[in-house]
Simulated assay, not measured.
Amino acid sequence: MRIRDALESDAAALADLTGRPHDVVVDLVHDRSVRVAVRGPETRGSNGESREEQTTTAGDEHSGSDSDADSGDHSDADSGDIVVGFLAFDAGSEVVNVTDFGGTEEAVRRLFEEPRRFAERERMDVDVVVPNDDEDRIRIVEAAGFEAYGAGPRFDGGDTTRFRLDIGE
């Protein structure tokens, strides 16, 4: 699995992951910093076993395979990449806000490293708001080091919790 910037050509896969209309996802890719976790084309190793191509983008410090990425595969026909997760974020004056994320648990955990690195460079904290009834997302956010610090805004009629990863200072 590798992490790269989202492309407009990823919009169909992101729309599938989020359940949102294609146009909304295209706007997300244009308006936010969006990273995707992808599995690339398969290649054969020296022992003949199939292994994932381990090319990386600039700034990607990680490579490897994602054994649980078979659920939720979304191909980008242009590159052959299979999108297994995404994360969108933007930076305010004092905090980096994760505005959306989804995909396999392993992919999302890796993707949370992206806003963390940005926040560390800029000496900012990272915030994310999660619906209270979404136990899977809460577990992933907490596993990434975030701590609940208060109620978030109501979203689609439901309560949310604001989580923060303290990095600044």
Rank of each mutant, 00 (worst) to 15 (best):
A13W: 08
L14R: 10
A15E: 13
L17I: 00
L17W: 07
T18G: 04
G19F: 04
G19N: 12
G19K: 15
R20K: 14
R20W: 15
H22A: 02
H22I: 07
D23G: 04
V26H: 13
D27E: 13
V29E: 01
D31R: 15
R32K: 10
V34E: 11
V36P: 01
V36F: 01
A37K: 05
R39L: 01
G40Y: 07
G40N: 09
P41E: 14
P41S: 12
E42H: 00
R44W: 10
R44Y: 03
R44P: 00
S46A: 01
N47H: 05
N47W: 04
R51I: 02
E52R: 02
E53Q: 13
E53P: 00
T55P: 00
T55W: 09
T56W: 08
A58V: 07
H62F: 07
H62T: 07
S63H: 12
S63F: 04
S65Y: 15
D66L: 08
D66W: 12
S67K: 12
A69E: 12
D70Y: 12
S71L: 11
G72A: 08
D73S: 14
H74Q: 03
S75A: 13
S75R: 03
A77V: 13
A77S: 06
D78V: 01
S79G: 07
D81Q: 03
D81G: 06
V83R: 13
G85T: 01
F89T: 04
F89K: 00
D90H: 09
D90E: 14
G92D: 09
E94N: 02
E94W: 11
V95C: 02
V96Q: 03
F101P: 15
E105G: 04
E105H: 05
A107I: 13
V108L: 09
E114I: 01
P115I: 14
R116P: 08
R117P: 08
A119K: 00
A119D: 14
A119W: 01
E120A: 09
R121P: 00
R121D: 02
E122S: 05
E122A: 07
M124C: 13
D125M: 03
D125C: 11
D125R: 06
D127R: 15
V128E: 11
V129L: 06
V130Y: 06
N132Y: 05
N132I: 13
D133L: 04
D134H: 12
D134K: 14
E135F: 00
D136E: 04
R137L: 06
I138K: 06
I138N: 09
